[in-house]
Design a protein around this nucleic acid. Structure first.
Length: 397
DNA sequence: GTTGATGATTGTGT
DNA sequence: ACACAATCATCAAC
């Protein structure tokens, strides 16, 4: 790039070689003019000096630029001013522009506007959904809470947990916003600083608006990657919080005694085919104050556990069979039962009654409720269509 | 603290 | 989509 010119050590008298007025360029080590050269043969760019002279002149300027950082602030400022006023400056500037154009093109190809990072979009969406990002006091948190608890019955202390959750969430939220603000502020400050620098530099070297733009974009990219990290850790914090407070599995609540009773009554009174239809599930859910999916879960668990250890459930089965039998004889004293036993074309005859007189504990007696393969009889028929609640008067009141 | 009960989740099969 | 089976995580009694 820059070829160092041989220094002649000719002394301060050559200081005005740059044609710089006043005090600048007076130092010996900056004077590179050869004594053998005559000013008269100068031609070249301005047409007043010859080629040799011009080249050396350029060399002088470049040399001065190179050494400008070694000088004191005042000296450097003075030199800068001198350089700006130098007659060669426009020419040098245009050369620099040309070089820049060439290198700039290759750089530009490398980094055209990249598509938005999908991960960042996901993070943003999540933070928005959780109520961390987005408008203040948004319904996000509440929505998240309700979404998380929709699968389970609202327990009495749920509101207390929610307030705890909310306070923790808002804590995260405020930290997130503070940090974000800090980053943004730092980004703005740094951008301004860099832009000022570039503007300053544009006096001595070509700095295109596009270059400034690119520099700003680079800065923003860097800062946004930091912001992404912030978002990521915020998301993690929210997830942990959620799992801690809202995971239904963690906050399992036993169903009320009454609800369990209703479910058990249905189960044992439909033991031959304990697969409630969708409507029956809805009805049971309503009666128990739980969701349909909880009813499904309960029946799923009950079937499997009953099947695994019929003996253990024998007593319970007898109890509910008795209840059901009593209920049918004396009228319905258990208003919550699906009450399918009354005209049970299918249920009672095949289930509840039998328990009253089948004491065998090892479970073999139940083979006639279940098929030999362990499946319930009727399981293969369409579950909902053949549901034993066909005759039940669900809206008994 | 241990243990059995229980509601929920997950993976698999149909 | 639903059921089953295994498993997890919590509750509740001791």
């Amino acid at each position: 790039m820059l070829q160092q010119q041989p220094l002649t050590g000719n002394g301060p008298s050559n200081g005005r070689v740059l044609g710089v007025s006043g005090h600048s360029g007076m130092h010996a080590h900056n004077s590179v003019r050869q004594p053998s050269q005559h000013r008269s043969d100068e031609s070249g760019l301005e047409g007043t000096e010859n080629g040799h002279e011009t080249r050396r002149d350029i060399g002088d300027i470049l040399q001065q630029i190179m050494t400008i950082t070694d000088q004191s602030l005042d000296e450097a400022q003075a030199k800068k001013h001198a350089l700006n006023c130098h007659r060669m400056k426009p020419a040098l500037f245009s050369v620099l522009c040309e070089i820049k154009e060439k290198t700039g093109l290759s750089m530009r190809n490398n980094q055209e506007e990249e598509p938005q990072d999908p991960q960042l979009v996901r993070l943003d969406n999540m933070l928005l959904a959780e109520g961390v990002a987005g408008p203040e006091k948004g319904g996000g948190a509440a929505a998240a809470v309700s979404a998380a608890t929709s699968s389970g019955g609202m327990s009495p202390d749920s509101s207390l947990e929610h307030s705890d959750y909310k306070s923790k969430l808002s804590q995260i939220r405020s930290i997130y916003h503070t940090e974000l603000e800090k980053y943004e502020q730092a980004c703005t400050e740094f951008t301004t600083h860099v832009m000022n620098l570039l503007r300053e530099q544009s006096r001595t070297r070509p700095v295109t608006p596009r270059e400034i733009e690119r520099m700003v974009a680079i800065i923003h990219r860097k800062f946004s990657s930091i912001q992404t990290q912030l978002k990521q850790s915020t998301c993690e914090a929210v997830m942990i919080l959620r799992s801690r407070f809202l995971d239904a599995r963690r906050k399992r609540r036993n169903f009320s005694k009454q609800a369990t009773e209703v479910l058990n009554e249905y189960f044992y009174s439909h033991l031959s085919n304990p697969y409630p239809s969708e409507e029956a599930k809805e009805e049971l859910a309503k009666q128990c104050g739980i969701t349909v999916s909880q009813v499904s879960n309960w029946f799923g668990n009950k079937r499997i556990r009953y099947k695994k250890n019929i003996g253990k459930f024998q007593e319970e089965a007898n109890l509910y069979a008795m209840k059901t039998a009593l209920g049918t004889r004396q009228g319905d004293d258990s208003p919550h039962t699906p009450n399918s036993t009354g005209s049970g074309s299918f249920s009672l005859s095949g289930s509840a009654d039998m328990f009253l007189g089948v004491p065998s504990v090892n479970g073999e007696q139940s083979a006639y409720q279940m098929q030999s393969n362990g499946n319930w009889a009727g399981r293969n028929s369409p579950p909902s269509g053949t549901s034993p609640h066909s005759d039940q008067s669900e809206n008994s009141d």
